[in-house]
Simulated scan of single mutants.
Amino acid sequence: MCTTHAAPFRFDIVGSFLRPAELKEAREKYAGGEIPQAELKAVEDKCIIELVHKQKQAGLKVATDGEFRRSWWHLDFFWGLQGVAKTESLSVNVFKGTPARSQSAELTGKISGNHHPFLEHFRFVKSIADEGIIVRQTLPSPTQFLHHLVSPANLDNTNDIYPEREELIRDIVQAYRTVISDLYAAGCRNVQLDDCSWGQFFEGRSTAFDADRSTDEQRKEEKLRINNLVLANQPQDLRLTTHVCRGNFRSAWATYGGYEPVAEALFARQDVDAYYLEYDSERAGGFEPLRYMGKDKKVVLGLITSKTPELENKETILARIREAAQYVELDRLYLSPQCGFASTEEGNLLTEEEQWAKLSLIREIAEEVWGAE
């Protein structure tokens, strides 16, 4: 087996962690005007320092800030771009049985990635992480941003500012390239693009984002083109990966269905180094679509669920890894949770203790399958 000193790792994570009670309380007080931003930041800093230490103790070779400074996995990034404003939304809820908060983002002008606040978020984690630990920066994918801007709730506003679709695409791509370039200059060597937007092609697709009248094939090709324009000609030592799932809010999901409808475009032609793929339930389908996976690509199997507290049966997971190895050789397979534990600040329905028990199980299985790495 090969060993690596760059993402992905045999024992890996997606990015977000459950927020400690102390952090949740501080965010509530800040929202209510009870404490200033500086006091909130001090609590965030403290909780992130503790989290980075816990990740190291767990045996991880990668660290994130747990997305502790965010309310949402995607909207906070959008709000940090120039030309984007925070709004309230009355759009249709897409999560099964669980109403989400009514926050959104819309354009106020042309899009730019200059001076994004996530740059300082990264620098803080980089400053406290031990040498040899890879600090991962998670971002919503560029096509997730496009998907948001052309949703029914946003389409008219977006068209007012960008009457020409190609100009919108050009500015999205340039904004992302600016942010990634700034992150790289700050020492970032692993950017993960989180992408739920491929779910619009799955069997259980949501109709909440169907304002775009183009065909499925046209939309797939557009998504692939936008992502690849952002990924093109990046530094060779920058690991660019993507995470694909079907929604994650308070343990609820947004869509279901296997990867087959998008496998050829996503797995064979998207220019990432590795894929973090949701595979924790029947909603994700089988491993057969992995036959399209590019021969130079790595696959992180999200076989351990972050949605429920019960620990998986180790033998069942070992059997599923062997099954996946029929399509992608074992040396290109890795293991992680299927998603983060808290894609939004509410978090999934399990405790912090149960969260770390899940990671301990992943480490145990990874060491048994691939040995220490």
Rank of each mutant, 00 (worst) to 15 (best):
A357H: 08
E323A: 13
R19E: 05
D212P: 06
R363D: 11
F341K: 02
K220A: 02
Y259R: 02
T64S: 08
W79I: 00
D194W: 00
L349A: 12
Q200D: 09
Q144L: 11
W356H: 11
E282I: 11
C196V: 12
C196P: 15
I321G: 09
L240Q: 10
K24C: 10
P163E: 08
Q82N: 12
V230C: 05
E345R: 04
T98R: 09
F95N: 11
G340M: 04
D156S: 14
L330Q: 15
G187H: 08
Q338Y: 07
T138D: 15
D216S: 14
D160K: 14
R177G: 09
V84L: 05
G83W: 00
F249A: 02
P36D: 03
S112P: 04
S102V: 04
R283W: 03
G132Y: 02
S251H: 09
A263G: 13
H5C: 10
G59Q: 01
A372K: 10
Q144C: 10
Q103T: 14
I365R: 08
R320Q: 14
F341W: 03
S281F: 06
I365H: 08
A26T: 15
L301S: 07
A274E: 02
Q103V: 12
F124I: 04
C339H: 06
F9K: 08
E329M: 04
A63D: 08
L330Y: 03
C47T: 10
E28H: 08
F209S: 11
E367T: 11
L23F: 02
N348Q: 07
E167H: 12
S71G: 11
H121K: 02
T108G: 05
W198K: 09
L90T: 15
L238V: 00
V262G: 03
H148E: 05
